[in-house]
Amino acid sequence: MKNKVLVLLLPSLLLMSISAFVPLMTVLNYSLHVLFSGSIPKYIGLENYVNALKDPAFLSSMGKQFLFCLEILLIEIPMGLALALLLPKRGIMIGPILVLLGIPLLIPWNVVGIIWRVFAREDIGALPVIFSKLGFFYNVSKVPAHAWWTIVIMDVWHWTPLVTLLCYAGLQAIPQEFYQAARVDSASKIATFRYITLPKLKYVLIIAVLLRCMDAFKIYDEPFILTAGGPGTSTELLSIFTSRQVIGGFNMGYSSAVSLIYFIVVLLLCYILYTVMTKIGEH
């Protein structure tokens, strides 16, 4: 039996070694050295890590990343859930609606960036025009706050459908009998939501929060194309910071350390979220 297990797992283990394990070990190795391309690596232990944790640019970028994650979670989860509640449970409209919801999810991420760049730029975009008609000044490449919030809205636009789809599936899985019982018990709409819908959606919501958190923390293409981290470094999220180190930087050791810290933070974050959310459901 053990042999069978091994045989069945072998393809996956092999693939993951190539795509994950070996690269990870390499990064780990690099991070403990000073490494310039073409030169001989010099072992310096954890010095790269210490420097990274003292680097103001790195810390500022990390702070922005956390803020970003928090903001999109606070918007996307309730909005996605609300939409799922509004969607019809049966009927012919479901097919087209699901397709419509799927479209933003299937646009290549950098195309999402392009769409919003075209939409928001001051010379070719519709958004500045809309804002000025409403009496507001809007400039995504000059005003940091505008750039920041455009990125947030872009992410909401991009990913809320995922939350909606997940919640919709979760809602479908709730047996009707629970709602019937709630009616028999004279429960108000709010009470029904609080005591039946929400508890039964717990699992789906956990998946939604984890998935969004994981992906939001790594986000790269869309903000890069929209603002490339600017104006200045006001929208330089972690992945943009890291890839700048890796691609443009010369010290591969330092950038590897940065990458690993990044990875560990994501892991910790997801672990904490997962634990907290599973505990919440048990009141």
Partner: peptide
């Protein structure tokens, strides 16, 4: 461990993958 790879930031793997 498998799941953690899903969370891996691509940026962290650029150099090693390139080399590999």
């Amino acid at each position: 461990w498998l799941l953690t790879n899903r969370m891996a930031p691509g940026a962290a793997f650029l150099v090693p993958m390139f080399t590999l």
